[in-house]
Amino acid sequence: MGREYSQLGLEERIEIARLSGEGASIRQIAAALDRAPSSIARELKRNRGQQVGYQPAHAEAQARARRWNGSRLDRDPALRTEVLGQLRAGWSPEQIAGRLRRDGPSRLSHESIYRFVYAQIRRHNDFTWRNYLPKAKSRRGWRPGKGGSPALHMRHRVPLAERPGAVLTRLDPGHWEADLMAFSRYGQNLLLLHDRMSRVLIGSPLPSKRAEPVAGALAAALQTLPPACRKTVTFDNGTEFARHYELGALGIATYFCDPHAPWQKGGIENAIGRMRRFLPRKTDLAALDSGALIGMMAAYNNTPRKCLGFKTPAEAFSEQVLHFGCESTSPPSRG
């Protein structure tokens, strides 16, 4: 029977480098490693660096590079076209991979998509490829977070500790988180509301950051919903929410995060981060028509989410929120 062959490993390459440096012959190295002399000769010839000679790490990298046939996205043009189209639409690599698993057999991991994009940047020195990614970063890594603002006292402020525990389960519709999405031009802000259960996002531009117009915009956004879909709203400690108590007229309870703890309303913080891809800070809201803003909201609400089993927020709203009695979004009749 023929002898079974296995690839040289890094430990064997380290030994080859040591013995070769001590002046051992190819046959002596082969005998020490129980390998064929031809394998050692081929290893020393193919994986030797021109400047540094034979180095184990370099030899290992060279061998791996020869065995690599390219990423799946390089080999499958149809899959590549589909993935790049979804990236352009604002989907993250993890959302794309999850939706592929949901729609059929898993064909791709999110790490493969990240590696493919970063490989194009390195291969072509073309940094426009980073715009395919949610954070548009040209290299992997974490960005340091910013510190929170000091807590401010306001009338009728109720701390988050007094919020009903059922809100944390995300199984009950009508519990919202609110925040402002700020832009570089003075006075331009977008009010965003995020439903904790379905992850549906609604929003509207603000004429001012003052408490009075913010309270009016909050009431206008929520009053069209039936009472079962507007139970609580959670804010941070910004002065723009100082007139939060006016929502009590709609039967809505309001709660505030602890000082320096924006993570306690992580849903809206995450939503703002995702919306930044469509609306970077330098965007001029005055030049943006309402149809374009509605389209961006629709794109967000129709993007699959891992936390929803790769359903979209719109699908989750239809399947879950409507199930809890929110069949209509028209205001209740008066009289």
Rank of each mutant, 00 (worst) to 15 (best):
F127A: 14
G325F: 03
L218S: 00
P331S: 15
G238S: 08
E12Q: 02
S138K: 09
L285M: 02
K135Q: 12
P280E: 05
R199L: 10
N301H: 05
S208N: 02
S208D: 04
N301I: 11
A30K: 03
H110D: 13
L285I: 07
T254I: 03
L279G: 03
P105A: 15
L206C: 02
L160T: 07
R157M: 12
G104K: 08
Q95K: 07
W129I: 13
G248V: 06
S92F: 08
Q7L: 10
Q86T: 05
K209P: 02
H110E: 14
D289K: 04
G248M: 04
R3A: 07
V117T: 10
W263N: 12
S290K: 07
R170N: 11
Y300M: 07
R155Q: 14
K135M: 12
V233I: 12
I26F: 03
A316M: 05
F116Q: 07
Q320M: 08
W91S: 04
A228S: 10
D195L: 05
W263P: 05
R139F: 10
M181L: 14
G251W: 00
G238I: 03
A261L: 00
P134F: 09
E177L: 07
S112F: 02
H323S: 15
N301Y: 11
S138Y: 11
L218H: 01
H175Y: 10
D195I: 05
R155S: 05
I113N: 09
Y245G: 00
K306W: 10
P280A: 01
T329E: 12
P304V: 15
D74I: 03
L308I: 14
A292M: 14
K265E: 06
L218D: 02
L218V: 00
R13T: 00
R80D: 01
V200F: 06
